[in-house]
Computed example of a mutant assay.
Amino acid sequence: MKFRSALILILVILVADQTLKFWIKTHMYMQEEFNVIGHWFRIHFIENEGMAYGISFGGEWGKVLLTLFRLVAVVIGFFFLKKLVRERYHKGLIICGALILAGAMGNLIDSLFYGLLFSAGGYSELARFLPPGGGYAGFLHGRVVDMLYFPLYEGYLPRWIPFKGGDYFIFFQPVFNIADASISVGVIAILLFQKRFFHRHRGS
């Protein structure tokens, strides 16, 4: 697989991720949602200060450190991806590397620039792009936009289940975005096919 092909895949994922996030930011109120397929696939708008799937990390300084870490990881990721291509590793590993790198870049863009580019928005006001008074936060302090919600099951657990029996339960509860999904698919595929992926491919 050529490095240019990997870059095209990264660009396609970034465009999809950022286009959806831009639309969500400028067309939906915080916590607003609508059904896409039944009740189990919804668009649900939230923002988070931290990592994938809404996991938080260390307050204000944690946010800055996480953003800087993402930036360093993306830079290193490009060099590592180029190395995989140059040394002719398995095409699947290169694709997975591109997926992970694209996902990291997608959330990095939010963290770096969204605070500068958008007004805060909220529960009763839509966010505006390039507002006259400036954005809601400074450089490195943007919030990551999440919207994909798949509550595949909602209901009360049977009482015979230890500890949680009778509790109301939602599976799958985290809200995420295309970038998160891209990272997850890449990582899971590498774990599943690592024996096949981690060797150099000498074919064409």
Rank of each mutant, 00 (worst) to 15 (best):
residue 1 M to D: 01
residue 1 M to A: 15
residue 5 S to T: 14
residue 6 A to V: 10
residue 8 I to G: 06
residue 15 V to Q: 10
residue 17 D to C: 09
residue 17 D to G: 13
residue 18 Q to A: 11
residue 20 L to G: 14
residue 22 F to S: 12
residue 23 W to P: 00
residue 25 K to I: 08
residue 27 H to K: 13
residue 32 E to R: 08
residue 32 E to K: 10
residue 33 E to C: 00
residue 36 V to G: 04
residue 38 G to Y: 08
residue 40 W to C: 02
residue 46 I to C: 03
residue 50 G to E: 04
residue 51 M to Q: 10
residue 54 G to E: 11
residue 55 I to Y: 09
residue 56 S to M: 07
residue 64 V to W: 08
residue 66 L to K: 00
residue 67 T to I: 03
residue 68 L to V: 15
residue 76 I to S: 09
residue 77 G to E: 07
residue 78 F to D: 04
residue 78 F to V: 14
residue 80 F to K: 06
residue 83 K to I: 01
residue 91 K to C: 03
residue 91 K to G: 03
residue 95 I to R: 08
residue 96 C to E: 01
residue 99 L to E: 01
residue 100 I to N: 00
residue 101 L to A: 05
residue 103 G to K: 01
residue 105 M to I: 15
residue 108 L to H: 04
residue 111 S to T: 07
residue 112 L to P: 01
residue 114 Y to L: 04
residue 117 L to A: 02
residue 117 L to D: 00
residue 117 L to G: 00
residue 120 A to W: 02
residue 121 G to M: 12
residue 122 G to S: 10
residue 127 A to Q: 10
residue 128 R to T: 15
residue 129 F to S: 12
residue 130 L to G: 02
residue 132 P to W: 06
residue 136 Y to C: 14
residue 137 A to T: 10
residue 138 G to M: 01
residue 140 L to Q: 07
residue 141 H to L: 14
residue 141 H to W: 05
residue 145 V to K: 05
residue 145 V to Y: 02
residue 147 M to T: 11
residue 147 M to D: 07
residue 148 L to V: 15
residue 151 P to R: 11
residue 152 L to I: 15
residue 153 Y to A: 13
residue 153 Y to L: 12
residue 158 P to D: 14
residue 159 R to Q: 13
residue 159 R to W: 03
residue 160 W to E: 14
residue 163 F to Y: 14
residue 163 F to Q: 12
residue 164 K to C: 08
residue 165 G to I: 12
residue 165 G to C: 11
residue 165 G to H: 09
residue 172 F to N: 15
residue 172 F to P: 00
residue 172 F to K: 00
residue 176 F to P: 00
residue 177 N to V: 09
residue 179 A to C: 14
residue 180 D to H: 07
residue 184 S to Y: 00
residue 184 S to C: 15
residue 187 V to K: 03
residue 193 F to I: 01
residue 193 F to H: 09
residue 196 R to W: 10
residue 196 R to S: 13
residue 200 R to N: 04
residue 203 G to A: 13
residue 203 G to F: 07
residue 204 S to F: 05
